[in-house]
Design a protein around this nucleic acid. Structure first.
Lengths: 308, 308
DNA sequence: CAAATTGTCTGATCTGATCAGACAAAGAGT
DNA sequence: ACTCTTTGTCTGATCAGATCAGACAATTTG
């Protein structure tokens, strides 16, 4: 045993004072009276100070005991308060939530969820980092990371909260020029490649039980999704994007969904956490809201695209 | 185990924060690093809150951990201060000393010792109760009792600090009228009895190896030493008193010591304490001073009365 | 005066604290 | 890029402290 103070005896001592006897203290603490006698005796030994004068059937504090009781009972109250305060972290969102998400998913989905979160928990504060660079949650001191795609094996704990679909879109002008297309047309169509995606130049279309594997050589290949988007908007070629990032433009007619009857491989949307045994309420609450948003997105997608 | 908070883990946690790692904390606390890991883990379990984010070779507090660290380290500082404050009771006199002594010994000897005590420890306060009634130290909440005489067996702890002699004195007029007396004269002499003394009417004189047992019938018997003294002063008869209570009068000639070559049975002067394992410095200091006073009285008595 | 209650003590048992060592994961040095 | 070192966790074993059950002495209560 190292020479740490044993603070666990304080409660036995203060309860004797408050209850007026060892026997009553033992009753309150639900232990044998010998335990109380022993623990207070050990405390006096450690302090080398007599805290209680005992006569048969009677006990009262010495001057030192009276003074120490004031200090000890205050310590115990503060300890209970400290324990209760920290327990609130698991009971209700409090403080600052620091999260990171990919740029396009962050702006398209996470921002809206942050708004709902702050409305629900006005006492919260959020620090959002939308960046396609995958950060180390521990080093960067983040409470939460949103990952979109296919999760690499990682020590981080993760929870899948939704699914995204990949869709092919084109500018209205290019779509009009190309007319209706099928997967078999893929090799002859103009494509814009995205280095952020797996397997550039290979596509796997599926419809019901039917699956078509195609290959193409992109006219232009970009390393940033924003650049891919810009090229696609200017009519250079077709681009592949997660559905959530172009849903609004397709809905409004500013972009045209190509191969609308076919599905491309979907990916997951994950909440990723630093390794920890207990998750604070602020994180759980946010992830629950985001999952709810994803459920609504999924239900809306089913209504507009029954084949999914 | 009752449901008391375990406060002994706080120091492991705060030391990890302060040292920057489990390994460094273990070094500081002189325990194995597995102990620190275990104790902090148990603390997190009890709180159901993650206090530290751990990556390999790195550790940092969570928000909850940071908040709890402030509270916990303050608690530990206050605990150390409380323990140190109470330890001072055993190191130096502090507060109020409540003592009781018999009236005549109190006024003759203890008062002088109180003066010296307050001069030596100006921060002290004393509550002195001079009363011939023997009080119960525990019930009456006294730190110390002075007993003069022959101690009855008691549960109180006691320490003999001195000795008193009984002396026979008379008013100068009576002494002149009687002339020189010897123990053999005892039965024909006028006596004033004191109910506070043992064996009223029987005296045991001794001188060297010689011992003379005598008996007498007192003219007047009083139940208060003060009354015995008053009768003696008015010349009614001889009175027997502890030497310390008449030393000044004999010295000044206002009273006359009878049978100056003979000794009567002596008694003890005792410091009596309520039962306790540790004695506060304020009590020890006072008893030491009183014992020193008694040593000086004893030395002075030997110089003026070589046969003792 | 007898019965009841309180606080302490003791030996036994149980529980928690700690140790010693192994292991996985990441960082540092070459 | 690879090897070595360091850190934190886990596990089984051991030790130390906490607690229990019961006996006993002393005082209070009826």
């Amino acid at each position: 045993m190292s020479k740490l103070l044993n603070l666990n005896r304080l409660a036995y001592f203060t309860t004797v004072i408050e209850a007026g006897s060892f026997t009553a203290a033992a009753d309150r603490l639900n232990v044998a009276k010998a335990v109380v006698s022993h623990q207070v005796g050990r405390l006096e030994e450690e302090l080398a100070v007599t805290l209680l004068v005992r006569s048969t059937r009677r006990v009262r504090p010495t001057d030192a005991g009276r003074q120490f009781y004031e200090r000890a009972s205050q310590l115990l109250r503060e300890a209970e308060s400290a324990f209760a305060d920290v327990a609130r972290h698991t009971e209700e969102p409090t403080g600052l939530l620091r999260l990171t998400a990919p740029l396009d998913y962050g702006t398209a989905v996470v921002a809206e969820t942050i708004a709902t979160y702050l409305k629900t928990y006005p006492q919260m504060r959020v620090e959002a980092n939308f960046d396609d660079m995958v950060s180390n949650l521990v080093d960067d001191e983040r409470d939460l990371g949103i990952r979109v795609g296919w999760l690499a094996d990682s020590s981080n704990v993760s929870r899948k909260i939704g699914t995204f679909h990949q869709v092919v879109v084109a500018s209205p002008a290019l779509a009009a020029r190309l007319g209706p297309v099928s997967p078999a047309d893929t090799p002859r169509l103009p494509w814009i490649g995205n280095e952020a995606l797996r397997h550039i130049g290979r596509l796997s279309f599926s419809r019901g039980d039917e699956q078509v594997l195609t290959e193409f050589s992109p006219l232009v290949t970009c390393d940033k999704t924003a650049a891919v988007y810009a090229c696609m908007r200017s009519g250079i070629g077709l681009g592949i994007f997660p559905d959530f990032s172009v849903a609004a433009e397709v809905q409004s007619g500013r972009l045209v969904r190509m191969f609308p009857d076919w599905l491309l491989p979907s990916g997951g949307i994950y909440a990723v956490f630093p390794p920890a045994r207990f998750r604070p309420a602020k994180v759980r609450a946010f992830v629950d809201l985001l999952a709810e948003t994803e459920r609504r997105r999924s239900a809306a997608r089913k209504m507009s695209q029954p084949s999914a």
